[in-house]
């Protein structure tokens, strides 16, 4: 028995561990370090209709137990991703979850329609929570009705299941989750980064050229755990959890909170070998805790 095998809408995963979008590019860099077939899935970098250069530098700033980033959705655009990145990833036996971003509903719909037809894309992750772009992104992620409408429109055109990535920068995360579930979402991914800022001691000005950025890393793990704990009890769709995961122990904690799979983000920047390490460590941890299969852990905090 494969104790890590995980079934989710559209996704038949060898294990529930995958790199988070924006923290793994399109896989090429990590492909030189280890066999990408080891991964449960890959969440590729956000794709928009047109190519984007992103924000000016500095784009990252370190914080206590975390980092701020304001990359600004740099990507080669839907044509570049369809023609160059996804075909390269076809050499691996790994499902791809394509992160879809945009400034208008039409943008999201166009990217979703095209990218969902790629041979190895088995699910979409609707990015309604990027804090680093001027228009779109987070606007769709903070108003329940807007998020629901967008989810509905993307569901109409996508030929693969749609997961919606929730922003933690809201007053009521459960309300947002329920809205996108009503809109037809097949699953949730959560959480995206928390909006933050750092100031330079000498200049008194923000370190990031974009002024604000998204906070990620171990610092945000308790926020993610709390939100997944609250949301998972109120919706009937699975959650892929993320936010500061860097060890097998963290993975189990996310499952206890209510996640059915997890993604690793910032930890890839500190230790590029972290994903295969976590996958290797999980069976022994399940032994220690007395579980046959990792799915037994989901929702144990409230179930």
């Amino acid at each position: 028995m494969n104790r890590l095998e995980t079934q989710l809408p559209g996704l038949n995963l060898k294990n529930p561990v995958m790199p988070a979008s924006g923290c793994f590019g399109f896989g090429r860099e990590f492909g030189g370090l280890y066999n990408l077939n080891d991964l449960g899935a890959i969440m590729i970098k956000a794709t928009t209709v047109e190519p984007r250069f992103g924000n000016p530098t500095p784009r990252v700033a370190e914080t206590a137990a975390g980092m701020l980033n304001a990359i600004g959705l740099q990507n080669p655009g839907i044509d570049g991703v369809m023609n160059n990145e996804l075909p390269w990833l076809e050499q691996f036996d790994v499902p791809i979850i394509a992160n879809v971003a945009g400034s208008t509903e039409e943008d999201y719909v166009e990217v979703a329609k095209r990218i969902s037809t790629a041979a190895n894309v088995q699910a979409l992750e609707l990015n309604i929570s990027c804090p680093n772009v001027k228009t779109g992104g987070i606007a769709f992620g903070t108003i329940p009705e807007v998020a629901k409408s967008l989810t509905k429109k993307v569901k109409e055109v996508s030929v693969v299941p749609v997961y919606v990535k929730l922003s933690p920068n809201v007053t009521n995360i459960v309300e947002m989750a329920k809205a996108v579930e009503d809109g037809g979402a097949d699953g949730l991914t959560m959480i995206n980064t928390l909006l933050g800022m750092r100031l330079d001691l000498k200049t008194a000005k923000p370190i990031l050229a974009n002024k604000t950025g998204g906070l990620s890393g171990p610092a945000i793990k308790p926020v993610a755990i709390r939100m997944i704990h609250d949301v998972s009890q109120q919706v009937n769709i699975p959650i892929i959890g993320m936010g500061g995961i860097e060890s097998a122990e963290d993975v189990i904690e996310f499952f206890y909170a209510g996640a059915s799979a997890i993604a690793v983000g910032t930890a890839n920047f500190v230790d590029p070998f972290v994903c295969p390490k976590i996958i290797k460590d999980l069976p022994e941890l399940l032994d220690q805790l007395g579980f046959d299969h990792i799915s037994e852990c989901t929702g144990r905090s409230w179930n």
């Binding site: 924006g22 923290c23 793994f24 590019g25 090429r28 860099e29 990590f30 370090l33 250069f53 992103g54 530098t57 500095p58 784009r59 990252v60 700033a61 980092m67 980033n69 990359i71 740099q74 890839n268 920047f269 590029p272």
Partner: peptide
Amino acid sequence: EERMGCGIGACFACVCH
């Protein structure tokens, strides 16, 4: 020299035109 995140080309922190 530029502020870097991952150092291996994945995070897009240190790009230039």
